[in-house]
Computed example of a mutant assay.
Amino acid sequence: MRLILNIIWLVFAGFWLFVAYTIATLIAFVFIITIPFGVASFRIGLYSLWPFGRTVIPQVDKGAGSTIGNVIWFVLGGWWLALVHLVTGVVLCITIIGIPLGIANFKLINVCLRPFGRRIVSVEMARALGAHGVIVSAEPRSALPETT
């Protein structure tokens, strides 16, 4: 089912969202100081290209730096990317088939506005990590794959 949703998503929203995030990435890479914002933008762009089967969890070891980064991100480009998600979500909700995709688009606004201090992981890994990103299984942390 995830594959079918991802393919439908890719055709109707994912490609265009990825293009928007790629433009934001390229603009951020122009200035040396904003390269971390470009990396975050590209990471979210890849997530918005193929979102079903993955989720976003908070990183508990991030502090004030990620908060400051999120404020700067919001001012520089997060708000217009959130606007792209909002418009795309509303357009998708016009049809009955597009409603689940529109709702998924609205859920992406949260990570779009606050990308720092969050990890994009598979749903299975999120279950293993628990709600707060802390290991809840008996496996050592090195046994779980690292993703960023």
Rank of each mutant, 00 (worst) to 15 (best):
N105F: 00
N105D: 05
V11T: 04
V56E: 13
F31D: 03
N110D: 11
T148M: 07
L101P: 05
F74Y: 07
V60P: 05
Y47T: 07
F29I: 15
F15E: 14
G78C: 07
R43S: 06
I23Y: 04
I8V: 15
V60D: 10
G89D: 03
N70F: 10
Y47I: 10
L108W: 01
L113P: 01
A20H: 06
I8L: 15
A104M: 02
L10V: 15
A24Y: 13
T22E: 14
L113A: 05
L5R: 14
I109V: 08
D61N: 13
L101I: 03
F74N: 05
W16D: 07
A143M: 09
I99L: 06
G14F: 12
L129I: 04
A28Y: 15
W9T: 09
A24K: 05
P58F: 03
V19T: 15
G117W: 05
N6V: 07
V87Q: 03
G63I: 12
E139L: 14
D61S: 14
W79F: 11
I96K: 00
V19W: 02
R118P: 04
A138C: 02
L144C: 06
W80D: 09
P100G: 04
G78W: 02
D61C: 10
P145L: 10
I32C: 06
V30N: 11
T148W: 10
C112T: 07
W80N: 01
G69F: 11
V11G: 14
S66Y: 01
W16M: 11
G77A: 12
